[in-house]
Simulated scan of single mutants.
Amino acid sequence: MRPAIVYLHGFNSSPRSQKANELKAWLPDLNPDIDLLVPELGFDPRRAYQRACDTLTSVAGRPLGLIGSSLGGYYATALSQQFGLRAALINPAIYPYELLHDYLGPQHNPYTGERYTLTTDHMEALKALEPGPIKRPENLFLLLQTGDETLDYREALRRHPHSPCWIQAGGDHRFQNFEVVVPAILSFLGMART
């Protein structure tokens, strides 16, 4: 049965993001048997989480893994706990309901062209998805760069002290030299070509 990876993009991003496109380009060489699914999450946290759940349900019964970037890393953490899946978290947002509070008001998604208003209700919805104490820290693989200009990488280390991690000096929020860590992600997800 073909394994599947569900990639969850970040805030004001989309399936057309650079990392999603890079994964689509690299996976056939690393393991052509993997199906990559990248749902359009949108800005509403409830809808985003439901879309992620629906995507996982669509490939239920197959070997599954998650990759989440930034806000997608927050969703991937909650989904990992809910479904018992392994998840690679790339510069993950740990408390997005605090981080995004400064972004309340009119927003524009440069990938989709969508204009919307980010509200305190959205922050409450994000907080409601907080998975609480992590029961299976070994299911989370942190990929962090110390030069992340949006998130303090140390916050992820404090939140997930018992999870395996890959820390690179420098870099940025986008995660520079992403291709270097993709084989390690596949290995962690149990999807490296044998």
Rank of each mutant, 00 (worst) to 15 (best):
P63V: 02
Q18F: 13
N177L: 09
L64Q: 14
W26A: 14
E114L: 14
R193F: 13
E114W: 06
K135T: 15
L41I: 11
Q50C: 00
I185G: 07
P32L: 04
E22R: 12
H101F: 03
L157V: 15
P3W: 12
P32C: 05
Q81F: 07
L27C: 09
N91S: 15
L143C: 15
L89C: 08
W26E: 14
L126I: 00
A25L: 08
I5V: 12
E22T: 12
A192L: 15
T117F: 07
E138H: 13
S69D: 08
V6W: 05
S13G: 01
Y75E: 04
P96Q: 06
L41Q: 04
R193T: 09
P161I: 03
C165I: 00
F175M: 05
Q107G: 11
L71M: 13
D54L: 00
A76R: 07
A87L: 10
R16K: 14
M123W: 09
D54A: 12
N12T: 13
A52N: 01
F11W: 15
R174K: 11
A192K: 13
E149N: 11
G84I: 08
I94S: 04
A192M: 10
G170T: 06
P45D: 08
L41E: 01
K127E: 13
R115C: 06
D152I: 01
G105A: 14
H101Y: 12
I134L: 14
A25I: 00
P45G: 03
I67S: 07
P137E: 08
P131C: 01
Y95H: 13
A60V: 10
E40R: 13
Q18L: 14
T119H: 13
T117H: 13
I185H: 07
K24T: 07
C53L: 10
D172V: 00
R16I: 00
S163R: 07
G171R: 08
S14L: 08
I67E: 07
E149R: 11
L37N: 01
S17C: 09
S13R: 12
R193V: 05
P28I: 09
A128I: 12
P133H: 14
Y7E: 02
G65F: 04
P164D: 10
L140A: 00
A184E: 14
T57C: 00
E149S: 07
